[in-house]
Structures are given as C-alpha cells and as structure tokens.
Design a protein around this nucleic acid. Structure first.
Lengths: 354, 354
DNA sequence: GAGGCGTACTGTATCGATTTAGAGAAGTTC
DNA sequence: GAACTTCTCTAAATCGATACAGTACGCCTC
C-alpha cells in the first residue's frame, strides 16, 4: 500500500496536519520536528503530497488546457500552430503553469467532449474549432475561464478573445490584388466545406463556413473583390482537407488545369499557398507573372520563397492568450485583444496578365 | 456556490451515488430516473463530475507529463523537438490521453521539482535532461512509469528507454571524416560545459559532459577519431549555450578565425551545423571543399541545404516513448527500444584539403 | 500570580467524487 | 408459499490532502 500523509503521521506520532505543514508551510512547525517528519517520510518511501488530492482541496490544477481543431499531432506539423504554441508555452512557463494538450480525435466528437470533461485544468485555450463542435459547449459548461481566437455567440463573462481582425487582413490582401488589376480570382482554404475533400466548393456565401477564421478571411476577400467590381459568384472557392503543402498543390490543380484559369489565387494559409507555388512551377508557370499568389500567416518559409502574404503575430497570439487566461482582467473591455496584421508584398504578386 | 453531485441528488431526491451512476454507469439505474437526473443537473448548471475529484478516486489522471531540458517554449523552436513531440502526441491521442507539458524554468531548479510534484499525470516522459537535475529524482520518487531517451544509473523497474545508439551514430560520422583524410577536426555541441557560454571548452574527456546525448555523441567521435589516429587532446570542443543557428555560427567563429583552422567540424545537432555553414559562407569558405561539416538529427532543413548528417527517427522516438509509457510491457527486455540511425552523406563533406 | 500573548501542534470538517455491500421491492420458479 | 433472482437504489467507506478553529503550554508583564 502506498504511504500517505497519515502513514507518515502515524510513524512519527504527530497529526496528519503537521505532516502536511512540514511540506507546505515549514514555518508552522519547529525545524527539528520537520526534519524528523521528512526523514520518516523518506524511510517510508513517501514522495510528498499527492498532486491530485492537493488539487482537489486547493481548487487549483496548475495547468491550462489547450484545444486544437484537428488531431493534436497535427498541431506539430503546422508552423503557424507551433509558433502559437510557443507563445502560449512562454506565458504558461512564466506563470509556472503546465500546458495540457487535449487529445481530440477527428472522428469521434464524444471523445473530445470526454477529454474536456476529464481535463484537470484551471482554464481553456481554444485554437481553431468549428463553431458547432460540442467540445466548445462542454468547455462553456465547465465554468472555467476560456480564451479563444474565435468569437462565438453566447460567450460568457469568463471568456476572452485574443486574435486579429481576420476580415480586415484579407480585405487588404484582396485590395492589393484588385489594384494589380486581377479580376479572375480564386480562393483556396481549409475547412471551407464540411466534407474533407479537395476541390471546388459550392459556397453561396462566406457565412456558410463553419470555422471562424476561414469564414472571416473569406468575408474579407468577398468585400475587397466586391469593391473591385468582382461579384462573389464568379469567384471559385476550393477546399483543402488538411493544411498541408501537398493538398494546396492538388487544390491548385483544379484551378490551373481548366481554362480560363484565374490570374490570381488567394490561399487562406501560407502552407497552402506554398503548395500552390509548387503546382505553378510544376506547370512551368511563373508566380507573380503568370499567376499571382497570396498567402496568410507569414511563416518563415513564406519569406524564404518570396510569398506575398498577410503577416500575423503567431507567437504573440499564443502568449497574450496565455496571459489573459492566467490572470483574467476584471474590466470586460480588456477581455478583447485584437493584434495588428499587415500585408507583406513580396514576389508572388504582380500585375494581372490578361 | 458551484453545484456538486450532492446538489443534484438533493434536487432530485435521490442519493449521491445514483447521480454518479447516472453519469458513469447508465446501466445501473432506470432510464426514466436518469433522464430526470440529467435534466435537473442541466437546470442547476451542473456540468458533470469534477475531473479532479474523479482523478483522485480513480487513481488515474488521463494525462502524461513531458519534461524538457531547456525552457518549455524552447521545445517549439527546435525542429527536432517538434518532431519528437508530434510522435508523442500521436501516441497520446491514440490512447485518448492528454499531454501535459511541464514548465521548467532554466534558472530555478526547485520550480522544476515543484512542477513535477504538482503534475497530475499517470507517467512521465523525459526528453533531454542533465543527469544531475533534481527533477529526475523527483520523478523517480513519484513512483510512476517513466520513459526517457537517456540511460541513467538507478533506473527502476518502472522506467523504460527509447532512444538510439548515440555513440554508434557519431562513430559512423567520425569514421566518414577519417576516411576522407581529415585530421584537424573540431566538435561543436550544446551543453558540453556547465556554463552557458560560447567558446572552446576544457574537456578532458567526453565523460565529463552532464547530458547523456551530448556525452555519448562526443564519445562516438572520440572513438572514431582515435581509430583514425587522432588523439582526443588535439580535438577542439566548442560549447554553444542554445541549440540555435546563430550560436552555431558564433561558435564556428572560434574555430575559423584562428590558424590553423580545422578541416572538418562536427556539430552535435543540425541546427548548430547550419549555423556553422552560415559562418563558412560569411567568410567565403566553401562547405565540403574548404571545410567539411557534419550535423546530427537530419531535420528537413538539413536536406534542403545539403548537409551531411546522421539521420535519427525523431517522430518515431516520440511515438514509441508514448506507447511504452501508456502500456508498460511486462517483460523487462521490452523496456529498452533502440531505434536505428544512419549516416546521410550529402554535399558538406569532402576530402580533406591540407 | 492573574492576565495576556505567541508558538506549536491537534482534531475535525471539507473538497467532490467512486465503490462496495446490501436493503427492499417486484417478479420468477418449483 | 418458500426460495431465489433481478432490478433499483442507498448508506457508508474511501481516495489523500488542506483549512481552520481550537487547545496546551511556556513566557512575559505588572
């Protein structure tokens, strides 16, 4: 049987409380007795107060839970997500708090709900979840502080927002394309359709997209295009199932292998945009000359490959999220943090070639 | 006051146990009563059993703890570490288990010990810690399963090893350099010295290094060099404080800006090796011609830049670690997993120029 | 030597659940 | 109709700690 506080207390002949104090409040007892207690504990193989029992009593877990959209392991393949995690980890570390990455199987939503309900945490951080996901309701029900990068109807007093003005960001990118004279434009993004397929979607309006980020970004493009006289009905939107380079290339194929091909392709993430560049090169097309490409995120690879993109502060987003979660502001106004973004024009955009 | 099982039980007029059963063992009560309980719970804003109390009673946390060497946030800047984490996350996800990243401040060891003692987890995974770190003792004292990539004296029956034959890996790399005729060789690595400085170390023997990985890799080089007739006393070893490209370049400066410079530089990680390449280029020296460079890890960037390096399966290491931790093998022989490595010869190594 | 005060420790209640043994009622079998 | 199941549900014990009120006792003061 594993030794407990009581075991040690019995061995030394003191009360359980005193043994507890020996560990947690050394000033509450004489140094002599404390030494006797600790050495008895060592003899018995007692490793110190059980963290679970302590958490229960203290009503504090010492960790924050992180909920990702796709599978957890996916988070480590996406450079943007890694940066975000890095910022979050910094904030957690600063506060001497752990970071619990919740398992979130893609197939089974109830598993995600169970993960939320079983998480021993003091708060949640939500990265990129579809609005309808039941795990979000489970989080709300837990009654713990939540920070997310997506606004959502019914956000309670414990929830905060740390993010960017997604629509404004793509509005700037779209205006850039319009100014260059592009009129046959297309958009590639993840989670545009519910089904995990690669190909054009039938999307009457950006409002139909279930993911906050993709929806807002799409809306920004819609508005910018409209301002340039391009009706949304003429814009092809292509879905990619995963945020990866290969899928981006495959999606681009749907646009490039049919006439007339678009003169500009906007991708909702850099990874996908880089895939588009791959597809262009595979066809002997020159990015920025034959077809313009815009990304989103500004990951390091984007700079290396000269990708025009929207810069957003990934690590800051994570860090601010963590900070807000760990010391929730009293003033409701401080519960919304909108970080700046800016368009970075590089080599992959240029004047439209008719 | 937050509602508990008792609150709900009182409202419905049943016992606490029955409410518990309504959530955890639906077959133990009539469907009718269960519905009444759940709806009462919903009315009261009760979100279901408290995870901490449940963990205490069940003696299961539903998470595994991850302990990294440097600061937690560092883990997200190192491509190798990210791959490792990805593998670990996959295994955790498969088992529907969370992954708790422990805060581990570099300055304050006692904070790391506290983090270990406060971690509500079912086991620990150790990535790269110095042998002397007190957190390792704290982990051992917890009496939970541990998987690490470093062998350590006093590993108990609950500990397992998943790693590579570090020394054999660098022995192969060293033999490669010897075969190319290099005799003036140097090694750059992190954690070679205790002090976090950039510069040559006074290292009588690889055995003096506190980190398992660096120590073993260094030993492999020592053996390979000895086989080529190069005495260890003629080998300059240079320490880098962080595993980053800039520090690698700065460390290389110590070797390149003095005569005679080495004809080959072995780095204990790819990141550092890439920094060495930067330093070479900054001086107009050609990697593989003027100076040969070898890395370790085989991260994606290594391939892109033509770096000769030792390939090790990063994600596999993480995945196998997770698997071993989540279902500990009964047979002690299965508690040691040594994954294969191989030398990848690319463009940064070539015949020695006298 | 009565009163006041600080130190060092004890004992009990509490945190919020799960588990086990078993009570009581209803139905089944011989 | 006695014996046996089966189905529901309950009471009490348990998990391992912390918080807090309370007590014993020595010391100081006047």
């Amino acid at each position: 049987m594993r030794p407990t506080l009581q075991t040690v207390a019995d061995a030394v002949g003191v009360s359980r409380s005193t043994v507890s104090n020996a560990y947690s409040r050394p000033d509450q007892l004489s140094g002599d007795l404390r030494d006797r207690i600790l050495s008895a504990a060592a003899d018995l193989g007692y490793a110190g107060p059980d963290p679970t029992a302590r958490s229960l009593r203290k009503r504090r877990a010492g960790a924050i839970g992180m909920l990702f959209t796709a599978s957890l392991s996916f988070a480590f393949t996406d450079p943007y997500a890694v940066q975000y995690l890095r910022g979050l980890a910094e904030a957690a570390e600063q506060a001497r708090t752990g970071l619990l990455l919740l398992p979130l199987s893609d197939e089974d939503e109830s598993a995600a709900v169970a993960a939320v309900n079983d998480a021993v945490v003091d708060g949640f951080c939500v990265y990129c979840m579809p609005d309808w996901h039941p795990a979000l309701d489970a989080i709300a029900a837990r009654g713990l502080p939540v920070v997310s990068g997506q606004r959502r109807a019914g956000d309670g007093p414990l929830s905060a927002f740390v993010g960017i003005d997604e629509a404004a960001a793509t509005r700037a990118a779209g205006a850039h394309l319009m100014a260059l004279g592009h009129r046959r434009v297309a958009v590639i993004g993840d989670y545009l359709s519910v089904a995990p397929m690669i190909g054009p979607t039938t999307l009457a309006s950006p409002a139909d997209v279930a993911y906050y980020g993709s929806r807002e970004r799409l809306r920004g493009y819609q508005e910018a295009f409209a301002a340039g006289g391009v009706d949304w009905s003429t814009v092809t939107t292509v879905n990619v199932p995963g945020n990866c380079r290969r899928d981006g290339a495959a999606a681009a194929a749907h646009l490039l292998d049919r006439a007339p091909r678009p003169t500009a392709i906007a991708a909702l993430s850099d990874i996908v945009a880089l895939g588009v560049l791959d597809a262009l090169r595979a066809r002997g097309l020159r990015p920025g000359r034959d077809v313009s490409v815009v990304g989103f995120d500004d990951i390091p690879e984007a700079e290396a490959e000269g990708l025009t993109t929207v810069h957003q502060p990934a690590a800051d987003r994570g860090r601010r999220s963590g900070e807000l979660l760990l010391n929730p502001p009293t003033d409701p106004a401080d519960r919304t943090v909108v970080l700046p973004t800016h368009l970075v024009v590089r080599a992959t955009t240029g004047p439209a070639q008719s």
